[in-house]
C-alpha cells in the first residue's frame, strides 16, 4: 500500500473516531485495512530505524484501535492492541514524543486485569510502570485502578461502589459492570461466612441491589434460604465435618522416613 494512501486512511480513521458519537463500524473496517498497511510498511512491529513521524502515526492508529475495542466491548481485541502498543511505549519511549493516550490505555489494561481477577499480573504490570511511585499516585488514570485494587483487597467494597462513577475516561465505565458482579460475589461469600441470618432490606443495601427481585434471583443462584414472611435470609452453614485422620498419608510418610534413615545409618 502506498504511503499517501495510508495517510488518507489514517485521516479518515481520525475523523470517524472523533465524530460524536464515533462511527464504530467505519472505524472497524478502516482499522483492519490500516493494520495490513502498517504491516506492509514494516511499522506494526517496527524494526531498525523507521521515520519518527511514521512511528507516531502507527502508535496513534493502534491507540485508536485499543479504544475502539473497548467501545465495541471486545476485550480480547483490546488485549492484542495493548501488546502491540507495548513496543511503542517501552522500546521507543526515549525517541518518541509522549502520547496523551498512553496512561489512559495503561490504566484500562490494569482495570481489565482486575476485573479478570488476575491480581498477580496486575501487580507485575504495576511494577513495570516507568514512573516513580508519587507520579503514579498523582496520575488520575493510574490511581483509579490502583485504589480499586486496594479497596477490593481490604474489603472496603462501599468505596469501590462509590468510585464507580468517578472514572477518569468514558471507557473505564465499560468495566464497571464486570467489576460490580465481581464485588457482589465477593460480598456474598463474606456474608455466608460472617452472618447467620440477615434481614432482606439490609442484604439489599449490602449487595448494592436496587430492586428486591434482583436480590431474590441472586439469592436463588447462591442457594440461600429466603423467608419472605419474616423477610430474612438464612445462610446455610457448612457444618464442620469431623476431621479424619489421614491414614494413607501418615503411613506413606513413615515409610519414607524409614527408607531415608536406612540410607543414613
Amino acid at each position: 500500500m502506498a504511503h499517501n494512501q495510508l495517510n488518507a486512511l489514517y485521516s479518515d480513521l481520525v475523523r470517524a473516531f472523533d465524530a460524536r458519537p464515533s462511527d464504530l463500524q467505519t472505524c472497524g473496517s478502516l482499522l483492519s485495512k490500516l493494520k495490513i498497511g502498517l504491516m506492509e510498511a514494516g511499522l506494526l512491529l517496527p524494526q531498525g530505524e523507521p521515520n519518527l513521524q511514521d512511528l507516531v502515526i502507527a502508535r496513534d492508529i493502534l491507540e485508536i484501535g485499543a479504544f475502539w475495542s473497548i467501545r465495541t466491548r471486545d476485550v480480547p481485541s483490546f488485549d492484542r492492541y495493548f501488546s502491540q502498543l507495548q513496543t511503542f511505549y517501552t522500546d521507543f519511549s526515549s525517541t518518541l514524543p509522549p502520547s496523551k493516550r498512553e496512561y489512559p490505555i495503561r490504566g484500562l489494561n490494569l482495570i481489565r486485569l482486575l476485573t479478570q481477577n488476575r491480581i498477580a499480573d496486575f501487580h507485575s504490570t504495576l511494577e513495570s510502570l516507568p514512573l516513580p511511585a508519587e507520579a503514579v499516585s498523582e496520575n488520575p488514570y493510574l490511581s483509579h485502578p490502583i485504589n480499586l485494587e486496594r479497596w477490593l483487597m481490604e474489603g472496603s467494597y462501599s468505596k469501590v461502589w462509590n468510585a464507580r462513577e468517578e472514572a477518569p475516561v468514558e471507557e473505564y465505565k465499560f468495566f464497571v459492570d464486570y467489576l460490580m458482579s465481581t464485588i457482589r460475589n465477593e460480598i456474598a461469600s463474606c456474608e455466608e461466612a460472617a452472618y447467620e441470618s440477615l434481614p432482606l432490606d439490609d442484604a439489599k443495601t449490602l449487595l448494592f441491589f436496587t430492586s428486591q427481585s434482583d436480590l431474590l434471583t441472586f439469592a436463588q443462584n447462591r442457594g440461600w434460604q429466603v423467608n419472605l414472611t419474616e423477610k430474612t435470609i438464612t445462610f446455610s452453614r457448612k457444618t464442620e465435618e469431623q476431621t479424619e485422620i489421614p491414614k494413607d498419608k501418615l503411613i506413606a510418610r513413615s515409610l519414607a522416613y524409614a527408607r531415608e534413615l536406612e540410607q543414613i545409618v
Binding site: 481490604e154 474489603g155 472496603s156 467494597y157 462501599s158 468505596k159 465477593e186 460480598i187 461469600s189 463474606c190 456474608e191 455466608e192 461466612a193 460472617a194 452472618y195 447467620e196 440477615l198 434481614p199 439490609d202 449490602l206
Partner: peptide, 26 residues
C-alpha cells in the same frame, strides 16, 4: 477506618479469609 459500613465489609472479609473466628450480628 472511614465509615461503619466499611468496617462491616472488612470484618466480613476477615471472617471469610479465616483471619478471625466470629460472626457479625447486623
Amino acid at each position: 477506618l472511614d465509615s461503619e459500613e466499611d468496617a462491616e465489609y472488612i470484618v466480613g472479609k476477615a471472617i471469610r479469609d479465616g483471619v478471625i473466628e466470629g460472626r457479625i450480628v447486623h
